[in-house]
Design a protein around this nucleic acid. Sequence first.
DNA 1: TATTGTTATACTCTATAACTATA
DNA 2: TATAGTTATAGAGTATAACAATA
Lengths: 166, 166
Amino acid sequence: MDGVTDGAGLDPAELGAYFALEEVSSLLAHAIEQHLRGEGLTSVQFKVLMQLFDAPGGQLRMTDLADGLVVSRSGLTYQAGLLERAGLIARAPSPDDERSTTVSLTAAGRDRIFTVLPGHVEVVRRLLLDPLPREDLSALSGLLTRVRDHMRADPPRSATPRSRKK
Amino acid sequence: MDGVTDGAGLDPAELGAYFALEEVSSLLAHAIEQHLRGEGLTSVQFKVLMQLFDAPGGQLRMTDLADGLVVSRSGLTYQAGLLERAGLIARAPSPDDERSTTVSLTAAGRDRIFTVLPGHVEVVRRLLLDPLPREDLSALSGLLTRVRDHMRADPPRSATPRSRKK
DNA sequence: TATTGTTATACTCTATAACTATA
DNA sequence: TATAGTTATAGAGTATAACAATA
């Protein structure tokens, strides 16, 4: 694909970084997706569970969850409905703000995480971490972190800015 | 999300690399998707056009296209159908092997690429390339390339190995 | 009036399996 | 028999817009 983008003004180093990122992330995402499917979870559902697990008290509002995922509110409602039907999360009206829904991780949800996580980590380790020696890992982490911070500071114009407490 | 994966046996450097990659790739993919949608193309369709553009003679068989994408044959047939209806590609029986379909880029398809590419590159540049100085870009490219090569050498067990000439 | 969340609806995409035709 | 591709079908996921309830 060099002929193409070449004409668009990307030099070899830029092209290399872009294509390698595209390929690595899509292969990794695919492998992760495959593993989770085998466990009966979609990537989105797994992310929801992880966010809840990581939250203080294992609770978050729907809006908090939506902020961390790239789905619409209705999409999140759909996924939350599936997770609730599976008994992995529970929803209840927030005590402080009656408009809000507080989502909490159930014991079964926590169990599911512990069941799934080892395999998940194994996939990540085998595909992403193993091929790099320790110091390269730190370098990669540092580089990507810098890119991420820049992305976060300069949010995509296309996406409607999420509700931000101001 | 540290409390979680911490227990699963990933140290800070590993976690950093994994989470940063996840976040960077998903934010980039989202931004790219948004841009392409605005141009009336899905990511998959764009990739098909790019593959054809990059191919010698602007022609590939359906199987060749499928090898580069993460979709089933029927999924590719569907997308190819859309692209053909839009006049961006053309399909015809292969002259050498009557079972095969040769897909070719039309003039309109080539024009569409030239229309879309500048904006695409702009997104990639702004989100991924700009925040890194030149030498860091080379470093990132090198690291990711090594990971990719490792991934390719050790294909995911989950995915059915594609037809490989042997 | 603005915000939180759900629902109704329609659409896009994908995969599986069955099928056709050629090698 | 194996391969290339299409089709029929059915399911999963998503977004938009309208809606209800609360702030």
